[in-house]
Amino acid sequence: MREELIVSGRMNHLVDPNLHIWHWHIPLYLFLGGLAAGILFFASLYTILGKENEYRTAVKIAPFITPFILIIGLIALFLDLNHKLYFWRLYTTIRLESPMSWGAWTLMVVTPISFIWCALNIRELFPRWKWPHSLLDTAEAFFRKNIRTLSWILLIFSLILGVYTGILFSAFNARPLWNTSILGPLFLASGLSTGAAVIIFMSKSHRERMVFARIDLMLIGIEIFLIVHMFMGFLASTQVHIDAASLFLGGPYTTPFWLFVVTLGLVIPAVLEFLELRGFRVPHLIAPTLVIIGGFIFRFIIAYAGQESRWLY
């Protein structure tokens, strides 16, 4: 038996007895960032493939929510800072070793492009839209002419944004649950999946819904594959990683994770989408709703459980 006691007054707020430095802000932002990355990825992908009119919701309608969710995410990030008035320090340096640094710079690229993307498609919502100044017309013409370049930039940066939400966690060696590089692709797949779900949710075209249901089904398959591999990796690793995995395998996060994230957020939507693709009549809003809620809970569980996992000494 081994017992470890801190006998002096180490009662550092937010650190003892469990680290709790990140509250709701970070997982909320990771969810919104992943969602925006997913929507913008599909929008830019189908623009590059020249299918803007076939997948009108994905390319022209769904991106309208991305500036809003990115701004809400940025506000959450700002609220999370303890030294708020110094936030601009993020933009006085580029530190390649720090995921948070290149995350901040990625947002600096993606957020303006999301606004530009909406401006280019504003006539989808307001057909008689006129810019108040001729300079804006010139800008619109410029971006419209270079839409392929813009799409490629957006495609690459939305992928970086999606991966970064996971890498932010996996770069922390000190928290064994986070310290797995699978979190990068897993959060990317989850972000793309929630993005596809939002497109299904908003689309009025049956054909477009079916295409995105197929994409979503594939992404859910990838997510389940990655989750299984994540746990295999943990269980084959050191004691601290086994302890981290046991938070989900009998520990306090077992029920929320396997019930809300895996069953309700992945398996049931996958079954519903599969049935829908096979021609069964399934209410088409259930699967995307579950995917979005599952993705949301997933970020919270990983953020909170990760802070409970630690090295032993």
């Binding site: 650190v15 680290l19 430095i21 999370d80 303890n82 708020k84 922390f172 928290r175 802070q307």
Partner: peptide, 8 residues
């Protein structure tokens, strides 16, 4: 900026 990354 008090982001907490180093604490984690």
């Amino acid at each position: 900026i008090g982001c907490g990354a180093c604490i984690a």
